[in-house]
Amino acid sequence: MNLPTVVSTTTTPSSKPLQLSDVTLTYPDGDTRLTALDSVSLEVPKGTVTALVGPSGSGKSSLLAVAATLISPERGTVVIDGRDTTGLSRRELTEVRRHKVGMVFQQPNLLPSLTALEQLQVMAHLDGRSAKAAKGRAEELLDAVGLSEQARRRPHQLSGGQRQRINIARALMNEPTVLLVDEPTSALDHERGAAVVALLTELTHKRATATLLVTHDRAQLTAVDQIAEVYDGRLRRPTTATAR
């Protein structure tokens, strides 16, 4: 098992696609500023799932947003697949998200007008590629999440678990090196939640992504490779899942 540890600058991009180093983030809070992340350093190795746990307001979502390049930290660096994203323009950050990062949202956030298959094809279209040409890969991913039969269905015709599986398949469409997953089981019952986490772990291992999974459901942690706990914006020393 690999451990998410304090970042070493000598880490190669291929083995540690997601590296956060000394990341500090504050939010305005009245006349003062609230520290959301306090000198957080984290590495997520390739082909592993790192669970990020902690109480509400501990900084899990902030950490995920920083890793997704949706927020720029005040201090520290975020390196994705060997590229330091500090100081990149908005357009460049969008490109990084498009090519290197897959996002699995807490709620599936599927587009209501698109079928299951099109939810995946749109990812290719965003990248300037033909959606038609990407149909094969989209079908393969739908098959990987067990939804080949539902390819023509729209979100309102699918169950919560099925929507979440499409959410996962969509995140993998552009072959990201980093997969960021935000509380994927929060709207699912335990059984379906366990199935989703098992699927994420399986796909992470098979597709060699560096997966950072934010969750509050400690019952799901047995399926992940390592666990990092955030408390008051600080990252406690991570442990392997089996050490728990």
């Binding site: 998200r97 949202f105 587009l111 965003l126 990248d127």
Partner: peptide
Amino acid sequence: VLKALGAST
């Protein structure tokens, strides 16, 4: 959502 997924403005 599309912006978060990498759609440019």
